[in-house]
Amino acid sequence: MKTPLALVCLLIVPFLGSDYLTNLLIVVMLHALPAIGVSLLMGYTGQISLGHAAFYGLGAYGAAAFSVHGGGDPWIGIALATFLVGVMSSYLGWVIFRLRGHYLAVATLGFGFIVNIAFVELRDWTGGPNGLPGIPPLDIPILDLSFHTDGTFFYVAWVAMILAVVMAQNLVNAPVGLVMRGIAESERAVSSLGNDVTSLKRKILVISAAVSAASGGLYAHYIGYISPQPFAIDFSIKLVVIIAIGGFRSIPGILFATLFVTVITEPLQELGYYDVVVYGLFLVVIIAYMPQGLLQGAYGLGRRMLSGARAPAGAGR
């Protein structure tokens, strides 16, 4: 496994002296958390969610409100927001997991819309469409650590990502992970084998929502300002795109896909007004022709091209 090595190597990034690169990777790492959350629920357990931006946003607003309005410690705010989102998602799961397939997709989509509207309308609490400025940056006064700069916050994001990756890997590699994948294929088989399917789905949803909320809390304290817009439905869809590119059931694949989706739009900016079109086409191609994800797909393509070069007649498409 080269992934752990790659993740450790990331630690040198802040020393490269490029705030831009550091910042880009912070955003990638913060987005990787909800992406991993969606992958656990959708990739491994087969339950579609088009509402994860809401959990991410609730984490961000919860943590921000706690320190801005309540004057509380940001760390406690993040923890509290994560916990509350977890509790809330458990109840949400009780309601929405009566539904399957398209109905579940629509229900989660609706949830995402409702939460976003709440961000806009609960002005006293969220600042409405103008957003909530002045969210304090993170510190650990006892250890005399502060995370005000990109270079220092990078390590906060890194630790959060590593924790999420390790826990997600633990979960999917544990025996329970087998049952999760079983639910994706046949709920009735899993149920006949003595598993309470709804309860298990709810637990996965709680984990998935909590990891997203924690990331949202970190995001709020990193940027220092939040508005409803980054937590709109677009972000939920972006997460689904990420796990599709990542191959649904591969944590390293999803890390790569998060990086890819965040970075790919940069070189595409050269194309001016057509960047969106090219990006869209690109996504269609990946999803249609690389069901295993971009990483595996590109690898397979490379191998095919290599073998094709050796035996030109044998090359398929």
Binding site: M167, N170, L171, A174, P175, V176, G177, L178, V179, R181, G182, V190, L193, G194, N195, L200, K203, I204, I207
Partner: peptide, 16 residues
Amino acid sequence: MAGGVAGAKVGVAPSL
């Protein structure tokens, strides 16, 4: 193995 998971009572939280 998946067949035996429910009987083995391995929880989600410990698995994490």
